[in-house]
Write a protein that binds this DNA or RNA. Structure first.
Lengths: 221, 221
DNA sequence: CTTTGTACAGTTGTATACAAGTATAGTTGG
DNA sequence: CCAACTATACTTGTATACAACTGTACAAAG
């Protein structure tokens, strides 16, 4: 998910900074971006700024109005569901492909991650971190660069909604259990099972998130 | 897959033209793009050209070298497999989601497409067209904009490999049969079945394509 | 009072000029 | 003869100037 190694060009730095502000909601959903103001704020000219904006538009992290303005996309509850669904499809695919490619060392690595996850299951941040690293490890084993790319894009977008989702202890326990089953399926080379587990695992997270959101604050401000 | 309605800006026109040349292999895989030359060839300045190039890089239709040059990506057999796999995951997801959202009118529409497909199954081009329109119709019913976006990107990329794949009569007959089963599953609201059929359907196409390619010309020139 | 027209302030889109970096060929020293 | 260095031609990256466009406020006409 982290930019591999961005070339040291200003446009790349601006891209990273803008992306950070968008995902952290520092740039508020619905807000319009004015090039001259933003350019002076970031102390670059409009040219590299525009390049960064264009790239962010291509990733749907910014939105171009038909008239010509650029907006930070609003938060939309319907989109959350879409994002989780596509993420489920991607993780499911990668889990399936990992089954036929995992080496014993890979499997040992996965099991190690799950064990460390288990030790930290009471801490939300740590548990989240290990969950992500597990999925990253599976993605590496699967070795499907397109699936990885799409998964990364989805994950980025979900950042914007994270503040609205609270990971309960119950959810973390459940996730850990599902992670164990998933790793077992990969270890024993059962692609269909692994795919189904990964899919349902993410859908479970989706349902929890949707419940948390509709229960608490409105998402569309 | 078609650009909805691009604003009438030069950068958008250049984007479309470059994309066309890339997908048609008019711009050869491995070829480098020099901005001044390309700009004069397209009769625009470097600024809108660069914007188009940046966007194409974001879609992986162009490739940026660490040193700074921009290349048309080479054709790679391994990528074909990845593309088919991700497409399978996307179509599978959309088929699944279409099951719970399809109206009777939607289903009638799908059945109509399949019937017209059946009437044209002997013509490769027509059959291909109906196959695409069936998937597009399912995507519309599913209504998952992210899945659609990714599916469109994948489809674009596969264009570059189309010239190497020959659709046999046998394959078309098989595809038609699978389309029938898929539409039946959607019509009767069986998401798991629809998802599995869609997935396996694309994997079948993948295997056929890989056989055709490895059997005939080398893909990496 | 509403509606249309129009001027204006400010925005985005484009062209061009300039700075910084990269690769190549030639030259010099070992 | 080979290696390393330097000069040079050409590339990409950035800044800026200008053109085209959008929306808003205000005025005038219905």
């Amino acid at each position: 998910m982290v930019e591999s190694q961005s070339r040291n060009t200003g446009a790349h730095l601006v891209y990273g900074e803008l992306k950070r502000r968008i995902l952290s909601l520092e740039l508020k959903p619905g807000e319009r971006i004015y090039e001259p103001a933003m350019a002076t704020a970031l102390q670059v000219s409009r040219t590299p700024l525009r390049e960064a904006i264009r790239r962010l538009i291509a990733e749907s992290l910014l939105e171009q109005q038909p008239t010509g303005g650029v907006l930070v996309p609003i938060l939309d509850e319907g989109v959350i569901s879409e994002l989780y669904d596509v993420r489920a499809a991607m993780e499911s695919l990668m889990a399936r492909e990992a089954c036929s490619k995992a080496t014993p060392a890979d499997i040992a690595n996965l099991e190690g991650i799950v064990e460390r996850n288990a030790a930290m299951v009471q801490f939300a941040d740590e548990a989240m971190k290990y969950g992500m690293s597990l999925h990253a490890a599976i993605a590496d084993i699967a070795g499907n660069s397109w699936a990885k790319r799409f998964h990364d894009q989805i994950s980025s977008h979900m950042e914007r909604y994270r503040h609205f989702v609270n990971n309960s202890q119950e959810r973390r326990d459940r996730a850990l259990a599902e992670h164990r089953i998933l790793v077992d399926a990969v270890a024993s080379g059962k692609p269909e099972a692994a795919a189904k587990i990964a899919f349902d695992h993410v859908l479970g997270a989706r349902d929890e998130a949707l419940r948390a959101i509709s229960g608490s604050a409105r998402v569309i401000p």
